[in-house]
């Protein structure tokens, strides 16, 4: 168990120009580029973490924000363990977009997906157009953690991914215990059914294989 690596897939979504790519760039490469280019094609980056001795590998997907590209969305968020939903605190319309994403992700991925909602660009606090309290209340209501960040000043960025990772670890533990329970019940049931069978069916193997060459 100690050698196992938890592989988590994380997807970043949100309206165009809220700072998705910049958050990732700051988190992975510790840089900020003010002349960032429009993301058309989703990009993929990995980050390895060690949390209380648990090794975690994050596969982070940065997606295109413009509406048209939502047609490709399912390709990217399929099988995601977590999602970072980003809005821009200076852009009022970017927050309702987060709500749309919450609905879509919950519908497609169910309640197991861990959500973090991030208000980015706190360096532009003076131009704030999204009410903080409202954003926090909404996040709580949908079971998401709320954070504020400045990708530019590298404030709060690390915390977002740390909190999300912790949540995904909890979720994974929950799922494990759930499937163990199921497995126990399953084997009892099987014992009943296969009374006169000579060959027993192979026991279900655990669905997640946690190995990777790092």
């Amino acid at each position: 168990m100690a050698n196992n690596v938890h592989n988590f897939k994380v997807v970043l979504v949100g309206e165009g120009c809220v700072g998705k790519s910049s958050l990732i760039l700051q988190y992975i490469e510790n840089t900020f580029n003010s002349s960032h280019i429009t993301t058309v094609q989703a990009s993929f980056l990995t980050k390895k973490l060690n949390i209380d001795g648990q090794r975690v590998s994050l596969a982070i997907w940065d997606t295109a924000g413009q509406e048209q590209f939502h047609a490709l969305g399912p390709l990217y968020y399929r099988n995601s363990n977590g999602a970072v939903l980003v809005y821009d605190i200076t852009n009022e319309s970017s927050f309702p977009k987060v709500k749309v994403w919450v609905k879509e992700l919950r519908k497609m991925l169910g309640n197991d997906v861990c959500l973090v909602i991030v208000g980015n660009k706190t360096d532009l606090e003076k131009e704030r157009h999204v009410n903080l309290q409202e954003a926090e209340q909404y996040s709580e209501a949908v079971g998401a953690i709320h954070f504020q960040t400045s990708a530019k000043l590298n404030e709060g960025v690390e915390d977002v991914f740390l909190a999300l990772t912790n949540k995904m670890l909890e979720q994974a533990a929950k799922q494990r215990s759930r499937s163990e329970t199921l497995e126990r019940q399953g084997s009892q049931r099987r014992n009943v059914i296969i009374v006169d069978d000579e060959e027993t069916a192979a026991p279900p193997t655990s669905s997640k294989q946690c190995c990777s060459h790092s």
Partner: peptide, 12 residues
């Protein structure tokens, strides 16, 4: 998925 590596090939 092909979209991951080739979206830009087509769209751009």
């Amino acid at each position: 998925p092909w979209a991951v590596a080739t979206t830009k090939w087509f769209v751009c």
